[in-house]
Design a protein around this nucleic acid. Structure first.
Length: 181
DNA sequence: GGCAAGATCCTCT
DNA sequence: GAGGATCTTGCCA
């Protein structure tokens, strides 16, 4: 199945499809790649916890772009968090990429992170390790600088749990963790 | 124009 | 386990 088609449908399903896939960047000094191990689904206008719930603003404009758009925002004034937009222009849904497992360029990630452990086990850490910043907000994950790859079939199983760090709709079990096995 | 809160991470105790 | 860093956005006056 084409990857693009797998970003079509309910965002909570798409989020699970993204687990086990790889995200790749090729910024200086070399390529870095991670396997996605943790995501959260945000259902646009239907989801009180979503940035798009209150409508379009300059900050969240990327969420209203076409499926496959990258939405990068600043969190707590310090970190960058990255999402993959899924709903299309009429449905600003997105999947927050929360964590990944380094597979290529771990040494580069360690240099960017300033440490050798916990390279990409949180939203802010993942973007820092991959070199993703607000400059990449609104780019495409198909042919942009931050690319979503066709992955090998997923191994392991998925655990669903409540989302983290939000104050609204906290009970929705839309956080998905890949337990590789 | 001012203020409070936020999809986090790191360090120190 | 608790608290600080740091800044943008959105809401209200």
């Amino acid at each position: 199945m084409k990857l693009a088609r797998q970003l079509d449908g309910p965002v909570e399903d798409i989020a699970q499809h993204l687990l086990g896939r790889r995200i790749r960047t090729e910024f200086s000094p070399g390529p870095t790649e991670v396997v996605i191990t943790e995501v959260e689904a945000y259902a646009g206008a239907r989801d009180p916890a979503s940035h798009a719930f209150r409508g379009q603003t300059p900050r969240n404009a990327a969420m209203f772009g076409p499926t496959g758009t990258l939405y990068v925002y600043r969190s707590y004034g310090i970190h960058w968090c990255m999402n993959v937009v899924t709903g299309g222009v009429d449905d600003p849904s997105a999947v927050l990429i929360r964590a990944g497992r380094p597979v290529i360029g771990a040494d580069i990630m360690a240099r960017r992170r300033g440490r050798a452990d916990h390279l990409a086990d949180g939203p802010g850490k993942l973007t820092q390790a991959l070199g993703v910043t607000g400059d990449h907000d609104g780019t495409s994950v198909w042919d942009g600088p931050v690319r979503l790859l066709e992955g090998s079939p997923r191994r392991g199983h998925i655990i669903a749990s409540p989302r983290v760090g939000i104050s609204k709709a906290v009970a929705w079990p839309w956080r998905f963790v890949l337990v590789e096995g």
